[in-house]
Design a protein around this nucleic acid. Structure first.
Lengths: 155, 155
DNA sequence: CAACTAACTTGCATATTGCAAGTGATATTT
DNA sequence: AAATATCACTTGCAATATGCAAGTTAGTTG
């Protein structure tokens, strides 16, 4: 079981240690889906549009849970379904995610609308507050349904 | 030459696209070293303390340059030496880096001092301004020499 | 010009990923 | 109640990426 088999910490730098937890091609996409798209289940992540393989998805969910970034519980109304959710530690990645989003939208060809991005840069604090509110109230209606289509305040 | 051989974009999401550029275990560490540790050359990165292999380092430098995040030029005083430097696009990753640093320091066992981290959280804007100033003025004295040992304002 | 150094390459063993198919535990349908 | 479907994974295997040690090349120093 290749889970925590490599405890060799590269350095004491917080950036380095953070990257050991979620510095790969997939982890942050799962976190994004939990944070702003309202996805909760294995199947939903799988069909999220990024094309992650099921074995990798299972592995990342396991690692993120081991790292205390997400947690999981069986859905009451359906015993097969697992519901994943960000922990406090996980939702605290919101600022990282937001800055990543802003950088990408500014410097790469993306599917995000300029006007919306401008608004996000102006209102970082408001957006972060909204993300945290949704997390706390378990409000899983998507904040950013796919990409570029933000619903914040009045649409 | 495995450089831009995989142009399959996973989705139009800015986060996803950003991760395609530097979402691996090493790229952000190189960027960190350029941004706050004042490292410039291949050898310095290699001896940076994280233990990156030379082939991987060469590959990442090539990719980051291809992505427009860093640039390189031959040192005038020594023709063998290449000097790497962040571009504007690269220095714009400072907010991502800072949030990554803050998250890691808060949620993981790291070598960072609490008092300093508290200060960083309070003064995000000032720190970012300082990082940008150093970049603009090509001031490469390290802002964070190793880890946990910050020099900001008066020591 | 001989020794040295910086920045890479190369070869090869190992680890990680992607893909397709399969499994087992519920749930739903007939 | 039996058959079928769904969900969350596993497994096997080929392809890719990584880690490590040992070159190679070009420029520099003595």
């Amino acid at each position: 079981m290749p889970l925590k088999s490599k405890p060799k910490r590269r350095s004491g730098c917080p950036v380095s240690i953070s990257l050991e937890k979620f510095g790969d091609r997939w982890s942050l996409l799962i976190i994004r889906d939990l944070m702003v798209r309202g996805l909760r289940t294995f199947k939903e992540f799988q069909e999220s549009g990024e094309g992650i393989a099921t074995n990798i998805l299972a592995d990342r969910l396991k690692k993120l849970e081991a790292a205390g970034i997400i947690c999981s519980e069986v859905e009451e109304t359906d015993g097969r379904r697992m519901n994943y959710r960000l922990t406090k530690k996980g939702i605290d990645l919101a600022p990282v995610m937001l800055e990543l989003l802003i950088w990408g939208a500014r410097h790469e060809q993306t599917g995000a609308h300029c006007a919306i991005m401008a608004k996000m840069e102006e209102n970082r604090a408001a957006i972060l507050a909204e993300v945290r509110r949704r997390w706390q109230e378990r409000d899983s209606t998507p904040l950013i349904p796919k990409f570029g289509d933000l619903n914040l305040g009045r649409t």
